[in-house]
Write a protein that binds this DNA or RNA. Structure first.
Lengths: 157, 157
DNA sequence: ATACGTGCAAAGCGTTTGCATTTCT
DNA sequence: AGAAATGCAAACGCTTTGCACGTAT
């Protein structure tokens, strides 16, 4: 899954356009970080993005990664994913899609489903809340964790 | 909102039952932590729960809070919430309900909606994923953050 | 030329772990 | 008595911040 080649190109173009419009410097670090996220099919942490970018920019610093991932989110060219853990995770996908969230290991997998996409959202204006986006999170236990669980059960018998 | 008095009582009872069944010690710390979460209507961090519990148990330690909140989640008497931030948040509610997630300040508010509750979930057996639960997350910007944004805009004019 | 971004190092938080001691069953 | 939990302190990992220097517009 992940995003396709066309979408990837469009997103980079949009990024450069937004930089120009906002007068924000389009540095090589910023661009490389965006590409690193776009090239992933999972929901990487800042650390994972750093590892990936180091191949292209040797001396890039941890602080730059954190600062810029946040900038890219604000620009709307990537998003943050919601997860039950204690480490921030980013997502290349900005379109409507949904998540399988493992409550055991905190992993997240994408799931696409037209029925979920066409959900009718409730009115949130009473909360003063402006909805921009939504995700359905199917919470439970992933394949790996279920396997580990059954191993544990066998051992204790 | 939050949970009602009856639900609160039932949950504590269920907790004690689960302790007995599993032969898990039902310590005063454990019980106090559960009560502290049940008494909150928001989605507290471990630190917030610690603060609340200190009133009853002076010398309770940070480690005990973290360890036991995790235990309570495993027992299924509280849950973890999914959020875009870097701090783990707990939730007194274990029934199906939904969230308004602010992507600016990472705050979470509950929202109840029958239409969302009756959502038809896709089949996840192909992923080896066992669904136990679901949440719809309406992502966007909360009232407070929108206010701050408009103030900022005014200043820059 | 100026504003903004970067790298570095240190600080700041939240969470986890090892170990001696206490408590629950 | 024995297993498990607690408290404490240190370690750990992720994120943020201050500052000197470099770079994009």
């Amino acid at each position: 899954m992940g995003i396709g080649a066309r979408e990837r190109r469009d997103r980079l173009e949009r990024f450069e356009e937004l930089c120009r419009e906002a007068g924000v410097p389009c540095t090589i670090q910023r661009r490389a970080l965006l590409e690193a996220v776009l090239d992933r099919e999972d929901h990487p942490t800042a650390h994972q993005v750093l590892e990936a970018v180091r191949a292209r920019i040797r001396g890039i610093s941890r602080a730059t990664v954190h600062r810029n991932l946040e900038t890219l989110v604000e620009m709307g060219v990537i998003t943050k994913t919601c997860h039950p853990g204690g480490v921030i995770r980013y997502d290349a996908r900005i379109d409507i899609h949904h998540h399988l969230v493992c409550l055991r290991c905190n992993s997240i997998a994408d799931i696409d489903d037209e029925n979920l996409d066409s959900l009718e959202l409730p009115d949130t204006s009473a909360f003063g809340f402006k909805v921009s986006d939504f995700r359905v999170q199917l919470r439970g236990v992933c394949r790996e964790c279920r396997r580990k669980d059954s191993k544990k059960r066998n051992r204790s018998k």
